[in-house]
């Protein structure tokens, strides 16, 4: 008889808190290995670590291309794919704009309009040069830089699952600061119960998703944001076209997908693009589903989630005839 063990961990990493729970004969070893991968991912992808590959590419912007590892090449090429697919509403060269706004680091008023206008031309994913033969990356203009905020944690989530599988773990759940990835079902065969944070009520759930083998990622205007003197909310998801936080009429978007990279990028894309355009983009990714919350706190759920989403108290749900 094989022994099933359970192992759990809570760590700080990637600028947030990461929790893992794994079941299997080698659960403890698998979590140790996953924690090592977390450190490695951060050392490759973080623009805040001067020695990371991304920092190297950023420093050489406007001058030369830098050799990069397979993982960094993979995440950058996926990012460009998403940018192309959504016609630039998602852009990993958003870095200069993110730094200008400085949201999440005690910013309390928007930057000057002139500075936003000066910064905007630096944001353009078409200026990211990827050489598949050389495995190198570069940025065309000085001052440009890559920020993987909208995809890095999702990418790490997919890498974590690979490690769990390598260690024979058949049931696991990982939460990277709100990005959830599940492997298999729970050991008793029941689905994982993933609560969806309410975008306007702290410590309250919009509802509950029951999932097996899915990534569940949410983007919203309620974390990393500030409200100015006039009561206007400025959140961290910036529109690469306007240079301001996106105003698409949505308060939060949750994506349910087989892959966490996809869920992470698509949640940002749908949030920034809004309901109508966002759902069109979603149509390009078969098997992905979404929960959208508009500014009136109306909840819209794509039809594939009809039976696995349970709404919270006082939450009305509209089923959309798309997704899947």
């Amino acid at each position: 008889m094989t022994e099933t063990r359970v192992a759990q961990s809570v760590n700080q990493g990637m600028g947030t808190v990461i929790t893992h729970k794994a079941f299997g004969k080698h659960a403890e070893e698998s979590i140790r290995a996953v924690c090592e991968v977390t450190v490695r991912m951060e050392e490759l992808l973080s623009r805040f670590i001067p020695g990371s590959e991304i920092s190297r590419v950023n420093r050489s912007a406007g001058r030369k291309c830098e050799k990069i590892s397979n993982e960094v090449y993979e995440v950058l090429s996926r990012a460009v794919e998403f940018s192309t697919c959504c016609r630039g509403i998602f852009d990993v060269t958003i870095g200069p704009l993110v730094t200008l706004w400085n949201i999440g680091n005690d910013a309390s008023k928007p930057p000057d309009e002139s500075r936003i206008e000066q910064t905007l031309p630096l944001v353009n994913y078409a200026d990211l040069i990827l050489d598949p033969c050389e495995k190198s990356a570069g940025l065309k203009k000085t001052g440009q830089f890559i920020d993987l905020g909208g995809i890095g944690k999702g990418f790490a989530g997919d890498k974590f699952l690979e490690v769990f599988k390598k260690y024979g773990v058949s049931s696991a759940c990982t939460n990277i600061g709100g990005n959830v990835v599940t492997l298999g079902a729970k050991p008793d065969g029941s689905p994982w119960r993933v609560g969806i944070q309410h975008p306007r009520v702290d410590n309250s759930l919009l509802g509950l998703l029951s999932v097996v083998d899915k990534a569940v990622v949410t983007s919203g205007d309620y974390q990393r944001c500030f409200i100015d003197r006039n009561g206007k909310r400025y959140h961290h998801i910036l529109d690469p076209f306007t240079g301001y936080p996106s105003e698409s009429g949505l308060a939060s978007v949750t994506i349910v997908s087989d892959h966490s990279t996809e869920a992470d990028a698509l949640s940002t894309i749908l949030f920034a693009a809004g309901m109508k355009k966002g759902l069109e983009f979603l149509g390009n990714f078969p098997g992905t589903e979404a929960i959208l919350v508009d500014m009136d706190l109306q909840v819209f759920v794509t039809k594939g989630l009809k039976d696995c989403f349970q709404a919270g108290e006082g939450v009305n749900v509209n089923i959309l005839d798309c997704g899947g």
């Binding site: 709100g178 119960r193 993933v194 969806i196």
Partner: peptide, 25 residues
């Protein structure tokens, strides 16, 4: 009835920065 029906294993939310998250922990 409501609280048992919403018992969860984990919570998905917009990416949380460490300070806010640690407060919750």
């Amino acid at each position: 009835i409501r609280s048992q029906s919403l018992q969860v294993d984990t919570i998905s939310g917009a990416t949380i920065t460490s300070k806010a998250y640690l407060k919750a922990v």
